[in-house]
């Protein structure tokens, strides 16, 4: 499990991989928060390789959208199984997910 942060002037992309379970989320929580808190611009969560997400990951998303606003936060390349998780959680209305 590794999370990559790719920064450009206007965009911070967080690339997550495989299982974002409670343990994985706890391990990267500080790093993510730091990166997001110190960045002005678009935040993108890249979910292409994500196969599982825990409640903690949903909370990351909730926290991020609160911090930067809906217009500045996007989740991209979610597999259908992951898209369904956001749909069931009722977060699709509050997040930009593609």
């Amino acid at each position: 499990m590794s999370t990559k942060f790719i920064k450009t002037d206007k965009q911070l992309t967080c690339q997550f991989s495989s299982r974002m379970d409670t343990t994985a989320c706890m391990e990267i929580e500080n790093e993510i928060n730091e990166n997001i808190d110190n960045f002005q611009g678009q935040i993108v969560f890249e979910l292409k390789d994500v196969t599982y997400i825990a409640s903690s990951f949903l909370r990351f998303c909730g926290r991020t959208v609160k911090a930067v606003g809906c217009d500045n936060f996007t989740l991209v390349n979610a597999a259908p199984e992951i898209k369904k998780v956001f749909r069931i959680a009722g977060l699709v209305e509050h997040l930009n997910i593609s």
Partner: peptide, 13 residues
């Protein structure tokens, strides 16, 4: 209900 709905989403996997 927010917590339950999140749990439901995660459970689905």
């Amino acid at each position: 209900l927010v917590k339950a709905r999140n749990a439901s989403a995660v459970f689905n996997q």
